[in-house]
Design a protein around this nucleic acid. Structure first.
Lengths: 149, 149
DNA sequence: CTCATTGCAAAGGATTTGCACTAAT
DNA sequence: ATTAGTGCAAATCCTTTGCAATGAG
């Protein structure tokens, strides 16, 4: 563990593809890969600022793109008007719960969905690629605190 | 049936709410309420143009908002970067298949999902509001025609 | 007539792109 | 030294808003 971090896989990816290993790339990777959160591009910038690091908007987006291409990060769209990015952590497929009040995201897995959606796609003569299920609701915390805290 | 159209319900809604009944509103309602398609705001404008009618962008969006408030139209977000609007036709809840090549949308219903998502939300201590399932794939037509038609 | 709607153009938020400058190898 | 990345600002896409002109009741 010592001397090694979650960004190692990204460093290897960059090296293997002859892509420069920059401070910005490592800092952004460190934030996303070291957490289970679902970050928006803007939240990444804020997280960088909290650590005393910075990166231009364009760099954040471009690095997120590289991370997605590497397979280490997955892009999500929960219909909020912007995208979120999540470390893939080797987890094959999972669904999300989104608190419509505070934006909190939780994950769950349900084996039945893969089978179910495959059958449904077939019956409509679609070649299924993937599916996306989001459950919207209010989390326990927000129910206890009526107004924002 | 004669002398009456699908926009009647919208006309009644507008009258009941003391909202002016304009040509633009009727034309836009006629397009969406008279079809089972899932229109983007831009597609609504194109559909208007095909009929020789026009409406400013702002009017299209504002009318869509009124239609959604009336309950006659439902707003959808399939993660394409823009929203779509669909006549509700009294259909309670259904899911969508989206062709990632041509954008074609098909619908299906699965009773199990309501139960399933309610239980999942409960187990995460979320007060479930709604859910959204989209299956992405390639439709039969696009599989036959490799390149765009 | 009176008030809400319309349409244009400007504003907005998220994301992308062009380009001179800087840093990685 | 090369070559690619960075950051800024301008540009783009979808959507919203301000405001004078227009149309519905």
């Amino acid at each position: 563990m010592a001397g090694s971090s979650v960004t190692d896989a990204f460093t290897r990816y960059l090296r293997a593809h002859n892509l420069p290993i920059t401070h910005q790339r490592l800092a952004i990777a460190d934030i996303i890969l070291g957490s289970t959160e679902h970050y928006s591009a803007d939240e990444v910038r804020k997280a960088l600022a909290e650590r005393g690091a910075t990166a231009g908007t364009a760099t954040v987006y471009r690095t997120l793109e590289v991370l997605v291409k590497s397979g280490l990060v997955v892009e999500r769209d929960f219909g909020e008007g912007f995208r979120r990015y999540e470390a893939s952590r080797g987890v094959p497929q999972h669904e999300h719960l989104l608190c419509t009040q505070c934006g909190r995201v939780e994950e769950f897995r349900d084996e039945r969905l893969d089978r179910m959606t495959t059958l449904i796609a077939e019956s409509h003569d679609f070649a299924r690629q993937r599916h996306r299920l989001v459950i919207y609701g209010i989390c326990a915390t927000c129910r206890r605190a009526p107004e924002a805290g």
